[in-house]
Amino acid sequence: MTEATHTEPHDASVGAKLNWLRAGVLGANDGIVSVAAVAVGVAGATTLIGPILTASLAALVGGAISMALGEYVSVSSQRDTERALIAKEKRELATMPEEELAELTELYRVRGLSPETAERVAVELTAHDALAAHLEVELGIDQEDLTNPWHAALSSAVAFVLGALLPLLAILLPPPEWRVPATFIAVLIALAITGTVSAALGGAKKLRATTRLVVGGALALAVTWLLGVLLGTTVV
């Protein structure tokens, strides 16, 4: 094998089955914070329900579309990369099978198998499905289960909308004097919940991840509300 071949990434995919769920949690967080920030900002400037509803719905629709497009482009790029790697592996297996077998043997040896066992496993897997064996061990790719950009886009958009509905209802349902406090409370509770879920999915420390979300969300709401109050006082 050449040195260039050994520069291929050999890391296994991390939590492939949970990626869509993690993207959904992040989309919900964005929906909660984005729409809540717009809602309390406008509510700081006026108590009229019309402008608050219009701005909040615009933020919800625009944000959902933006999330879907961003996720679609990102996952499409990932899928293109995976397909390119699969094509590259097919070429290498066709043009230098002995080198590929030696590489597969070495990868199993590095994983802890004895040289004899590693060679036997590599030979048997190569005879069964050489491409699948190399994709799994070298690249962490399952060619039958590539990432789907449409699934990711839909998941993010739906999660954004569901997250955005919380601050939308919190700002619209209470009487005017309770709109902003109710939204603050609802948003911070929701962020604490989604932060805990996100940390659990990612294997991170729950307290730290949740604190970051809650503090960041509170800061965003406070700044936009203050801006709305200032603009409502000086402009409106």
Rank of each mutant, 00 (worst) to 15 (best):
S77T: 12
S77F: 01
A68M: 05
I49P: 01
E100D: 15
A87D: 06
I49F: 01
A84F: 02
S66L: 06
D80P: 08
E99Y: 00
T95R: 10
T81C: 10
A58S: 08
A68Y: 00
G63R: 10
V75C: 08
M96D: 08
L53K: 02
L57R: 03
A37E: 07
L48K: 06
R83P: 05
R83W: 02
A68C: 02
A36T: 10
Q78P: 04
V61P: 10
G44N: 07
A58W: 13
K88W: 06
I52A: 12
A87I: 03
I52W: 09
A58H: 03
E98T: 00
S76Y: 02
T46N: 14
I86A: 03
G44I: 11
T81N: 15
L93Y: 10
V61G: 07
L60T: 13
G41N: 07
R91M: 13
I86R: 01
K90R: 13
E82P: 06
A68S: 06
E92Q: 14
A59F: 10
S74V: 06
K90A: 06
V38G: 07
I52C: 10
V38M: 06
T46C: 12
G62Y: 04
S74R: 04
R79K: 06
A45N: 04
V40T: 03
S66C: 03
I65T: 15
V61S: 07
V42G: 02
L60S: 14
E100A: 15
A58P: 06
E100G: 15
A94Q: 03
K90Y: 04
A39S: 12
A64E: 11
A39C: 11
T47M: 10
A39P: 13
A94L: 03
A94W: 00
A59E: 08
L60Q: 13
I65H: 09
Q78I: 01
T95C: 14
A58Y: 12
A43C: 10
L69S: 14
L85C: 00
V40Q: 02
E71Q: 11
E92T: 10
A37R: 06
M96I: 04
A45L: 05
E92I: 08
V38I: 14
V38W: 02
K88E: 10
T81H: 13
R83H: 11
A68P: 02
